[in-house]
Design a protein around this nucleic acid. Sequence first.
DNA 1: CGGTATCCTGGCTGATACTG
DNA 2: CAGTATCAGCCAGGATACCG
Lengths: 117, 117
Amino acid sequence: MAKSNRAICLCPLEGVIDIISKKWALLIVNEIGNHGRIRYNDLMKEIQAISPKTLADTLKELVKYNLVKREAFNEIPPRVDYTLTKDGEELRKSIIPILQWALSKKGTVIAHCSCSI
Amino acid sequence: MAKSNRAICLCPLEGVIDIISKKWALLIVNEIGNHGRIRYNDLMKEIQAISPKTLADTLKELVKYNLVKREAFNEIPPRVDYTLTKDGEELRKSIIPILQWALSKKGTVIAHCSCSI
DNA sequence: CGGTATCCTGGCTGATACTG
DNA sequence: CAGTATCAGCCAGGATACCG
């Protein structure tokens, strides 16, 4: 989020917006939640429109905010699982109304939608 | 939102994210909702950290999406009122959980918050 | 497989001054 | 009062190639 010279808004929204305004964050949270546990490349497949860099960046952010947990296994080939933390689950639940709102406004052309609610 | 060469995601989230990822959109929707009916400069006062341009731009977007209604009165001095549309009200309701989630995660330092839930 | 490294672009946002 | 006009900067995000 860009900085400002203006008075700082101490609104609780400030923090959320940093998260939910990340283009892919909610989608990823929702997707991980749907799968319970999912690997990096499977996320790439589910969210086809995302680039590897952006996925990695966003996941890092989510891990930093303690919304997502990363588990790496020392195997060959390498394996990394992502799951939601308790906070992540809560966030996921709290965005359901907004997803439903979105659905009710579009209603159409969600046939091939890989990310369900 | 930046464009991409990749496969288009037909997810219902796509549309919402365009809206909720606007830095000030949710804040403005919430603020208008709190007041029921509010004028441009009063919004400026409530959301002190926003610039006039950004406020105007965001309002236009919200009007375009039919979330906010703009009413101009031919008076001197000029007067313009903003209210939420039905859709806007619904959106506002659907973001309450996320606001509450935000509150529960921060809980602190919201003393001088001008935007309440 | 699960990412980095690198380079690049354009849109969002801000500051400020001005106007009908 | 309710905005526009103008100029500018940053950085999220994309494309692509490569690595342990």
